[in-house]
Amino acid sequence: MARTTDDIASRQRPSKARQFWIALKKAPFTAKMGMGIVLLYVFVALFAPVLTPYGESEVVGSEFEPWGAKFLLGTDNLGRDMLTRLLFGARNTVGIAFVTTCLAFLIGGVSGILAAIYSGWMDQVFSRIVDILMAIPALIFSLLLLTIFGTSIPILIVIIAVLDSTRVFRLTRAVSLNVVVMDYVEAARLRGEKIPWITFREVLPNILSPLVAEFGLRFCFVFLTIASLSFLGLGIQPPTADWGSMVRDNATLITYEDITPLLPAAAIAILTVGVNFIVDWFLQKTSGLRDGQ
């Protein structure tokens, strides 16, 4: 026992940034690839106006022009440049998905922790509301709500966030329940700490790793939901460039053996795979599982 303490004492603790850098360097190839993909998407989303030759919804040619020097990936059903819209799509779809996921975590996470801390009637009320929301198939429910409230982007974000926060609530509540029974939470209560302290200082740091992992997965699902809604015509509205509606608008090209409509779909697929690579790595790191176990 004494020996292990000496070992720790003699080891200089590296700074936070350095620890992070070491962890990054030791990451497996798949995780590095995932990070590369995500960074690329973020870069494209941020600099879309600079990178693209034409405007987002500018009609620059005739319909369905083939790939060529002027239009690298051809044009779409209205004669807009495909490449331009693909790059702008990153900005719209990814950006909206990110905001939506954050909002879902804010709603579901906070209510999940509170349900676990208070338990009793508050837990009952939250949990039953979540049960009701989850009883209705999410896609149908969101279609219904979008039809009622209209399809502006803020409403789209709120509706998907609320529906997705049910899953976040369940996870947060479950992992928080394991933490709130710990003696250190009891000690904080007996000290007279208020609920915000217990929530953000005692419970949240201890459930962060499953939540971060879930954030990655949730982000993919939100992203797919937005794409599906757009494909069905109730998501992001034209003329805003969006990968889901781009697939729909150009779907007919598939019958002429043109793979152009698959490109936005591929963009979605690649990002999903990349995010999952990162999440896998993170889960493996934080759950303490080693290879071969």
Binding site: M182, D183, Y184, A187, R201, E202, P205, N206
Partner: peptide
């Protein structure tokens, strides 16, 4: 249990 009586993240 001192293990569970101190918050491991503090």
């Amino acid at each position: 249990m001192a293990d569970t009586a101190v918050n491991p993240k503090q």
